[in-house]
Each structure stands twice: as structure tokens, then as C-alpha cells.
């Protein structure tokens, strides 16, 4: 894989930065000339991962979330990293409708949305050490692209 470009951002774990993060990644990924749908997919997945870092990773607005975006010839690779609590049971956390914070009216669909909108989602986490979510989106640049079936 030929790395074409890379950017790294760090921002405080505050909810205002969710919009900043997804717009920043979308603007950077525009270099690959993605479709509007691909851009929307990326924005949604980044929003989910960054929200998870802010709500579940830290639950404290004075820590830093790291966001790395790499552009390759045919894909965008995004890493969202926090050094917060970590996830004890990753399989459980990834299950649809599972939420550790039902009192916040969270839907528990964050990982499911990431998996639906991105081509690959990998979660690395350990209690007390934080969480890294790595997501890959292939940019097809192909108008004949067929819709994925459910």
C-alpha cells in the first residue's frame, strides 16, 4: 500500500469536538475524490468513534483524543485513540444495543454503525490502557458502484 498522505490531530475530549473531528477527516479524505455517500459514511463512523472516546473512554473533558488519518491509493485509514478506561469485553461492547450507559439514553448502536458504514473496523483495548479503533474505507471512484445489500 502506497501512503499518499497522513494527518494527526489531538483535541480535548469535549463533545463540541465531535463535529470538528468528522469534518476534519472528511475534508482530508476529499483528496481521494470520494462520493458524497462515502464522505457521509466516513463522517458518521468518525462521529461514533470519537463520541465513544469522549463518553466511554474518558468521561472527563480534560483528556486528549488522538485522530490519525492516512490516505492510500484506494482507501482511507482512520484511527481514533484514547488513553482512558478501556473496554473489558470488546465482543460485548460491539454487540448491537449494548450500552454501558443506558442512563444517558445511548442506543448502543455505535459500533454497529461503524461496521455498517466502513469496510473494516478493528478495536484494540485493555482496561486502564485506553482504546484504539481502526477503520478502513475503500474509495471506489466508480459511478457504476452497486449498492450493498443488507
Amino acid at each position: 500500500m502506497n501512503l499518499r498522505n497522513e494527518m494527526r490531530l489531538e483535541f480535548l475530549s469535549r463533545s463540541q469536538n465531535e463535529a470538528f473531528a468528522r469534518v476534519a477527516v472528511a475534508a482530508f479524505a476529499a483528496q481521494l475524490d470520494p462520493t458524497l455517500e462515502e464522505i457521509a459514511d466516513i463522517k458518521t463512523a468518525v462521529s461514533e468513534a470519537v463520541t465513544n472516546a469522549i463518553i466511554h473512554g474518558y468521561d472527563n473533558p480534560n483528556e486528549y483524543v488522538q485522530l490519525i488519518t492516512q490516505i492510500y491509493d484506494d482507501c482511507v485509514v482512520i484511527e481514533v485513540i484514547d488513553h482512558g478506561k478501556g473496554i473489558e469485553d470488546i465482543e460485548l461492547a460491539r454487540q448491537p444495543l449494548y450500552t454501558s450507559k443506558p442512563e444517558l439514553e445511548r442506543s448502543g448502536m455505535g459500533f454497529t454503525v461503524m461496521e455498517t458504514f466502513m469496510d473494516e473496523v478493528e478495536v484494540n483495548s485493555a482496561p486502564g490502557q485506553g482504546t484504539k479503533v481502526r477503520m478502513v474505507k475503500y474509495i471506489r471512484n466508480d459511478t457504476a458502484e452497486t449498492e450493498r445489500d443488507e
Binding site: K43, E105, S107
Partner: peptide, 13 residues
């Protein structure tokens, strides 16, 4: 213009 899974929680509530 934009919604993520946070909106799902709002709708269900």
C-alpha cells in the same frame, strides 16, 4: 444535515 447513533437514542426515548 447529519445524524449518528446519538439520534437513535433520542428517537427511542
Amino acid at each position: 444535515n447529519f445524524m449518528d447513533s446519538s439520534g437513535i437514542g433520542v428517537f427511542i426515548g
